[in-house]
Design a binder for these strands. Sequence first.
DNA 1: CTGAAAGCGCTTACAG
DNA 2: CTGAAAGCGCTTACAG
Lengths: 341, 341
Amino acid sequence: MKNTRITLKDLAKDLNLSASTISRALGNHPAISASTKKRVQKKAEELGFVPNSIASSFRKKRTQTIGVIVPRIDIHFHSLVISGIEEFAYNNGYNVTIFQSKDLLKREKEIAKTLQNKMLDGVIVCLGIETKSCDHFKKINKLGIPLVFYDRVPTDFDANKIVINDFESAYLATEHLIKNGCKQIGHISGSQTTNIFKARLEGYKAALKKYNLPIEESLILFTNSLSYEEGVQCAETYLKSSLKPDGIFCANDYTAVSVIQVFRKAEIKIPEDVAIVGFSNYPISKIIEPHLTTINDRAFQMGEAATKLLIRQIEEKDDSITSETITLKTELIIRESSTRS
Amino acid sequence: MKNTRITLKDLAKDLNLSASTISRALGNHPAISASTKKRVQKKAEELGFVPNSIASSFRKKRTQTIGVIVPRIDIHFHSLVISGIEEFAYNNGYNVTIFQSKDLLKREKEIAKTLQNKMLDGVIVCLGIETKSCDHFKKINKLGIPLVFYDRVPTDFDANKIVINDFESAYLATEHLIKNGCKQIGHISGSQTTNIFKARLEGYKAALKKYNLPIEESLILFTNSLSYEEGVQCAETYLKSSLKPDGIFCANDYTAVSVIQVFRKAEIKIPEDVAIVGFSNYPISKIIEPHLTTINDRAFQMGEAATKLLIRQIEEKDDSITSETITLKTELIIRESSTRS
DNA sequence: CTGAAAGCGCTTACAG
DNA sequence: CTGAAAGCGCTTACAG
């Protein structure tokens, strides 16, 4: 049963043709006559010929495979991005091989190293949380393998990047709260070593400034990972604080949800007493009551855009790899948690 | 810059050794002297030698790569399974290539076909919702490629399967409701063309029988995809119905959450008036109020178990591929939505 | 302990 | 329109 895969040679012998002709016929080469092509295709079908794409990859030095490094697959944002990557890749004849760094720098480095063996046609990366420098990716570039980063992108490194405009998104979210009558707006922020959270904080501050509202440092709370649990703690901090917010822009949806729940338990009305905006448009934002106003962070599109850019670079004839940064437009999704009539 | 990858031959020339020796030294072959190994490794490092694993795969007819076909990556259950697969594979030196069938039979067939080219060492599959027959996977078996199904597994086909005990889990969930004093227990079920939902329905019925409770057909509601929206409809159906449940076992967490929300809006107390149990332990189950009692469906472990079984079959010397079915133990996670003191 | 040789299954430049 | 030949970069059975 096993090892009975037939090869071009077998087909050639069977048809009294050369392997070259078989190869070309199956590859739909223009120089081959239609009748030969038909004969070859028929026989291939008949014998159950399965081309060995490893042999082909080896010969052509093209694997038609894209490597993807994500912190974790089971984080909804990343699974959406991967879905976008897979979809675009599939439609363009590429496969996708997945690696999880688990947010561990050590593991990210290991992966970056083994990736070089794999003869991948290109690589898409979202950096892990521990990663400060990107030296371990420079080698991939040196080997001429196109590389695209998304979301958490390097700063020490002139590379292809797909990002959203975190600053502007945060600005719009905060402005929306202001326009709904909030005067004392708080912010729950993520780790300041991560650029996107820095940018969201800055966008929030910029909106306050623009509308001549004071920036109250006591209303700005920092978390490590924007977890649900940390959100609960932040909410309790607000409750105990002397200066109370009448609106809160949260840097993700989990913390926004936890604030809503803690506040409601404390008989604070959302959005009447406090209006809430989250970030990312997680599924839960449409389920929590009141439904959460949030930012659509275009995860799926990010995957598509990364893959599109990557494939373009793979297939471009000239070797001059240029770096591009694509900023996707986000969208403020207005729901009940922030809407005061 | 590009195409400057050095090969074994280059190293050999540089060191005045044969390519065979270089290959063996790098592969840590026992016949090579320690001093030679050191020399080779040092030089390899020095010249930045990156082995071409495609050439190696081609030669060895082993790609160290596992293919995974899932309906969708962005469904939390599957992303958890994939995470388990990737983790186990990574720790055992295998890569993971992902394909999404999008629950489309046509696409699943396409993927199954192209998979055969890829010389994958093994394949893990969760069938799409449209799939009734598995003929398109039989060829993979015939080629001697080990194959493991998980969750949605074939019935027309003697294959390796990783499943949970849906019947027993449903039985336990229902029994739990009974023990919490429920007398009229409803069930929200999924598509009856899918075995796991059939089994959950049967487990629910079996528990009722066991405890001499009547099976009221009007309390059993069917949905297509157990979506949140369908859950809302089911909840409304219950509200309008003459026979009202005092407990509901939902075949997933989304419908359970929607029922909780609709009922609470209708001033029905959870769990006092109606106790609710879900299925899958989605993140939302810990967030919804009251927290949802549910079944931990062991998604991550399913991925690990599938990969473990697959790799065992890949690495087993003898060709006699046997079929194994592994049933993972689930766990009833008791939270507030069902707990009457 | 090391080397020469063959070959994995394709593709493609060259020749006709 | 078709074929002969070379070769991609490894690995491994065989020989010494």
